[in-house]
Amino acid sequence: MAEEIERKFLLLNEDWRGAVQRSVAFAQGYLLGARQASVRVRIEGEQANLNIKGVTLGVRRAEYEYPIPLADAREMLDTLCEGPLIEKTRHYVEHQGHTWEIDEFHGDNAGLRVAEIELAHEDEPFARPGWLGAEVSGEARYYNVMLVKHPYREWRDE
């Protein structure tokens, strides 16, 4: 089975910006009706993928990803996905042997920034950059699929 081991963190400050090696615009949506998995259509720059992830919270989840034609992805985002779509810029930052993916959200989730690191195993050690804040790996509201249902802009009213 394909698996993803990923930890999510908030950011303390903007110091990571000086270390960005590249950035890519993302647009993604989630197909309606999936209950046992999140089924995501994602456009990453000029490439598109269909991604299926288990709904388990935590750092380890089943994950499958397949390339699809860009035109098909655009049509699925427009016609089959729940709204609002997730719009974000992903920044890639190398730090002591690991690649950090920092998602800077736009649209209904503007203002939210989350750093993610993928690991080979759950107990893999990694160096914490000085800009890294609290871990939110087990908090459902930070998952992209949840940001569709309860966007960050609504959190301020809670």
Rank of each mutant, 00 (worst) to 15 (best):
L12D: 05
E14Y: 00
D15W: 01
R17S: 04
Q21S: 14
V24M: 10
A27M: 07
Q28H: 07
Y30P: 07
Q36T: 13
Q36A: 12
A37R: 13
S38P: 05
V39P: 00
V39A: 11
R40I: 09
E44M: 09
E44T: 09
G45K: 13
E46N: 15
E46A: 13
V55A: 13
G58T: 09
V59I: 12
V59F: 08
R60L: 12
A62E: 12
E65N: 09
P67G: 02
P67L: 01
P67V: 00
L70T: 10
A73E: 06
L77D: 06
T79W: 10
T79H: 13
P84E: 00
I86N: 06
I86V: 15
E87H: 09
T89D: 08
R90W: 06
R90S: 03
H91C: 13
Y92H: 12
H95N: 11
G97L: 08
T99V: 15
T99Q: 14
W100G: 00
D103H: 01
H106Y: 02
D108A: 15
L112P: 02
L112V: 03
E118D: 11
A120L: 11
H121S: 13
H121F: 13
D123V: 00
P125G: 03
R128S: 09
G130C: 05
W131S: 01
L132K: 00
V136Y: 05
S137W: 11
Y143P: 01
Y143H: 12
V145R: 15
